[in-house]
Structures are given as structure tokens and as C-alpha cells.
Design a protein around this nucleic acid. Structure first.
Lengths: 335, 335
DNA sequence: TTGTAAGCGTTATCAG
DNA sequence: CTGATAACGCTTACAA
């Protein structure tokens, strides 16, 4: 079953069939109808390989992420795939893990599949040693296909970024705590990605602006470490260090803070306010429920895929979109 | 840059280059080395489209799921993609939603991409009205490529299933509660999938075996409805119906049960035991932490991909693998 | 508006 | 063991 069968059935040449399939204008209406009927009747589907050979595209987008089982990433992947499929683009998913050496490897792999674009989901893909040309793997890739970064920033002619203003979000949340009179705020974070750094600097900037001595304690934990967060806070507690609020770069870490407070009879939010990040379902699981920063994954993904579709259609798109996140107040903060 | 360039550089014909690329035995070692050197030097990568055209395969597996943002599914997708990529298979991800009409549509779509196999992740793909030939869309697909069902059961020559014994897991967990003296167990569940039905019947069978009048209350909620679960329990409570344990088909629903108990000053586990399902991270977020049934997603996925790779290599594989789940005891049950 | 025919870059079948 | 050469199924100048 191929294009010849259709052409025979419709009594036209394969060129005409091809034109109909590709929505080419110059086909007489009557001919078009005849061909469409033949296609339908035979249940014909063009061979994607042959099509790809001719067009050098397969309507497929490569989605790279470090770990699609992470709640935040899983949501992002879901929305990306969903929005792209609305426009008849398929998604090839590839998880790289967190080893930067693998970023280049998987980028090459996905490019070798001749995807039409690559989406990097998560700021860990942006490495921080410019002198080592660490990010060249992305720049190189951008010479082949347009590149889209979700929560990553990189300049480049063929590179398009959508980022959350993590700095601002954390800054404002910290300011809120400071206005509540909190002076001993612990910041828990994980990783050293661009996003992590922005969040952290948002926090320290807020303290500095408020003239609070920047002797806050903070540490570096894994992204899923509820218990590491809890025991870190316990170690501070055991040292009798004052602590009246906790901010976290991930909801998981904030969950650890809730557990810590509960175990030590510390009242939330009276004695300890807690703010998480991502506004994931975890924020609704704890008691009291977590106040958390929501960066609107769905909208971010929509913006990114809109840009992607524009670029693929040959239109212009902004190289840099900055979105703001919102604080969702629940029960671990005052008010 | 194509196979001709390589052949020229190596001073051989394209046929020989092709043989080297495909690991064909009948190439002299010296020739092979020469070709490999040329490939390396030129950084040549075969064109996947042309390759696909010739071989009619692209080393790609289609993964269908209803919603990849669901924690359980996200984990499954992660492991599937990961294990397949270890064997140089790429994954096309496609989320169908929960409308059965779309199952056929997306199946067709993914088949039109000429994937080498299709994996259906989740039991909702198995519909329950045999008289309507509801599942023919899978059977039809199995005529084109091998089909793998994760947590779904369907007979068929080219269909391979890996399922958890949900019935047994829930049955045993219920028995445990009964042994603890619980007589008023509420079962919360979501959906009407095969898996849901098995869980439910495991529950009712246990009650029957124990001679407990099967006047348990249970209800039908969305899979992510923490609050629906909570308010459903509240409605029972308001009616003064006795209740000394809650079992749930999803951790989210069990989280709702914890919230309910907390709000009404009901002691866990003394007055109310609670058992969730999936042993997700949610089980670790509540206080007390949830006892939950773990069905070992990673191993299930490993078994499935092992089978898949075998079948694609032309080897035999079992059409039906049944795995057992384990109860992970935490703080919402006695002992 | 339509058809002819030349690619696209492989793999696979023959001969040699 | 190696090389011509015919598929593979489609797109797209170029002609008509």
C-alpha cells in the first residue's frame, strides 16, 4: 500500500497524490476530492521514512530532561508533549541524568534522529564554567535545529528561552517573611543549577536589603531529600541556633521542615514559617499545608511551545521570555 | 556528507560501507578498519530516514499512557525510556487522556510513525465491554507490531503483559487489618479500570472470607482527589457510621484520609488504620507517614522492557508475567 | 492543473 | 570478500 496504489485508484499520477497530501494549492477541486476519496477508501498512510527522506523532517521534537520522574519535570514533559501533539508534532523523550558529560552525548543522539527542534527542560543543562565552553554542546546543536530552553538562559541566534524569575519570587517571599518579623531564616536548597543560584541570590539579596546580617544557615541537599532536610534542621536545632522561618528551593525540602517542626513541638506558623517551591501536590499533603511558590508550569510550557511552533513555521519568536511566579499562601505562613 | 563520501575516502564501494555500519560479517578486517577510520574522520552519521526506508524500522518504541504527569505513570515512563535507551531504542511518548475514543486515534498515530513496538502503560487501556470489541484497537495494532501492556491483561499472539497482582495485594492488606480486629473498613477507590476492579475485588473477597458483613462503604473518586476523599469520609462520619480503617487505591486518597482523621482528632493508627497504594513519595509526606502497597514499578518496567527487547530480537518471551506487590509498613498501621 | 522523472541516502540482491 | 545496481516511497523541479 503506497502512493502508487492511491494514484491508480484515483486515476492520477503520484505527483498529484503527493500534492493533495501536502496541501499544495494547485490541484483542481474535483481532482482533490477524487484523491481524498481514494486515500480514505484504501486507508492509506504515507510512509514517514520516505517522507522524511524527501522533506528532511519528521515532525518530531526532541525533549531532553534530566529525570522525567521528578514531579515538576513530569508535569512539564506532559504539557510539552500535549501542546506539541495538538500541532501534530511528536515528542521523543530522553532522560540524561545529571552527569554533564552525558548532556552532549544525548544531544548528539537526539540530533541524529533528525528532530526538528530540541527542548531542554530544566536549568541544570546550563553549566556555569564559561571558560570551559561548557555550553557549547547547546550552541553547536543550535546550528542544526532551533533550541528551546525551559528555565535555562543562554544567548544564541537559534536559541529561545522561557524562564521563571526565580530570583524575584524568592526575594519577594523572603521579604514577606521579613515583614512578619522573621530574622532567622534558614534557606534549604538543592543543586547548583542556574535556577538554584537565582533562588539563592534572591534570598540573600532580600536579607541584605533588609539589613539582616547574612549569617543565615543554608545547605546543599538532594532534590528529593525529605529526610536530609529534616535532619539538617535538627542539627541546627541541636546547636541551639535560632530559627524562625524556613524557605526551600523544592517542596520536598519544605516537607522535611514540616516534619522537623512537628517532631519538636514547634508551632507552625507561629514559631516557624515555612515556604516551599513548585506548588506541587506535596504542598497539599502535609498538615499544615505548605505555602509554596508556583511558577505555572502549564503556562511556561505553553509559551515555550508557542514559540517553538512559530520558529518552525518560519516566524519570529522572542529569544527570551521571563515569567513571574506567584506565592500560593496556605497554612505554613502567617496570613 | 553521506555514504558516498565515506566510500570515496575509504576507497571502497558504498555497499561495503553499509556492511561495516551494519556489522555484516563478510568484510575483511583490513577493509573494515579502513572504513571505520573514514567514518570517524568524517564524523559521518547515517541518515536515519534513508535507513528507516531500507530497514523499515527506526529503533523506536511508542509509549502510550493516559497522563504522564501522574506520579506513578511518570515513574514508569522514566524507567521504560531509560531501559530502552540502554539498548539504543528511542521512545516516542504520547499521552492519550482518559477518553477511550482517543485510544484508537493515538494508537493509529503512533503506528503511523512506524514504531517497532507499542507499550501501553496503565490498565485503563483495557476496556471492559467485550461485547463491543472495545479492545480491538489493541488487537489490530498487534498485527503490525508487538504490543506490551504494563498493568493490563489481554490475550493475543503478539501481546505481552506484565501485571501486578493487585487483587492479592489488597486482599492480603485487608486481611492484615482484619487480623488487627478492624471490622469497619472503608475502601476508597478511583476509576473503573481493570486494576481498580481487581483491587476492589481483593478487598471484598477478604471481607467475605473473614465473614465480615460486606456492608463496607466505598466510593468512586478521581485519582488525585485528596479533598474528595477527605470530604467523603467526613460525610460518613457525620452519619455516625462506624469506621476503624481506611484502604485506598491511590496514595492521594489515603492522604485525604489522614487529613480527615487529623481534623477530627481521630488517632492514627489506634482508632483508624490507613493503607495507601503505590508507595509514592506522598506516603512519606504525611504525618504519620502512610503504610502503602508497593508494586515495584522499576522491576515491572525492567521485566517489560526485557520482554520487549527479546521479542524484537526474535526470541520468545512470556505473554503474561504476574508480579506480587509488597506492603510497606509505616506509621498508619499497627506494628 | 497535471504528469514525468530525477533525486533523497540507505539496504539488499546479485554477480563476480 | 567486494562492487554494481535495483529497490524503498516520497517530494519536487521541470515540462507539457
Amino acid at each position: 500500500m503506497n502512493i502508487y496504489d492511491v494514484s491508480q485508484k484515483a486515476g492520477v499520477s503520484i505527483a498529484t497524490v503527493s500534492r493533495v497530501i501536502n496541501g499544495n494549492r494547485s490541484v483542481a477541486d474535483s481532482t482533490r476530492r477524487r484523491v481524498e476519496a481514494a486515500i480514505k477508501e484504501l486507508g492509506y498512510e504515507p510512509n514517514v521514512f520516505a517522507r522524511g527522506l524527501g522533506l528532511n523532517t519528521m515532525q518530531t521534537i526532541g525533549i531532553l530532561c534530566n529525570d522525567s520522574s521528578d514531579i515538576y519535570i513530569a508535569n512539564a514533559v506532559y504539557y510539552l508533549q500535549h501542546f506539541l501533539s495538538e500541532h501534530h508534532y511528536d515528542s521523543i523523550l530522553c532522560c540524561t541524568g545529571n552527569n554533564p558529560d552525558d548532556f552532549r552525548k544525548y544531544t548528539k543522539m537526539i540530533l541524529s534522529k533528525r528532530v526538528d527542534a530540541v527542548i531542554y527542560t530544566g536549568s541544570q543543562f546550563i553549566l556555569n564554567h564559561p571558560e570551559d565552553h561548557d555550553n557549547n554542546y547547546i550552541v553547536d546543536a543550535s546550528k542544526e535545529v532551533p533550541i528551546f530552553l525551559l528555565n535555562g538562559m543562554l544567548e544564541g541566534e537559534n536559541i529561545y528561552c522561557v524562564v521563571n524569575d526565580d530570583h524575584l519570587a524568592v526575594h519577594d517571599a523572603a521579604m514577606k517573611l521579613i515583614r512578619h518579623g522573621r530574622r532567622h531564616i534558614v534557606y534549604l536548597y538543592s543543586g547548583t543549577t542556574l535556577s538554584s543560584q537565582n533562588k539563592l541570590s534572591g534570598f540573600t539579596d532580600a536579607l541584605n536589603e533588609a539589613g539582616i546580617p547574612n549569617r543565615i544557615a543554608y545547605t546543599h541537599l538532594g532534590p528529593k531529600d525529605i529526610y536530609a532536610a529534616k535532619s539538617y534542621l535538627e542539627s541546627l536545632y541541636d546547636q541551639n541556633l535560632p530559627m524562625d522561618a524556613v524557605m526551600a528551593s523544592e517542596d520536598t525540602l519544605a516537607v522535611g521542615a514540616v516534619k522537623f517542626a512537628e517532631e519538636h513541638g514547634i508551632r507552625i506558623p507561629e514559631d516557624l514559617e515555612i515556604i516551599g517551591y513548585n506548588n506541587s501536590i506535596l504542598a497539599e499533603c502535609t498538615e499544615p499545608e505548605l505555602t509554596s511558590i508556583d511558577n505555572h508550569v502549564e503556562k511556561v510550557c505553553r509559551t515555550l511551545t508557542d514559540n517553538c511552533l512559530k520558529v518552525l513555521a518560519g516566524e519570529d519568536a522572542p529569544h527570551k521570555v521571563i515569567r513571574t511566579a506567584d506565592l500560593i499562601s496556605r497554612e505554613t505562613t502567617v496570613n
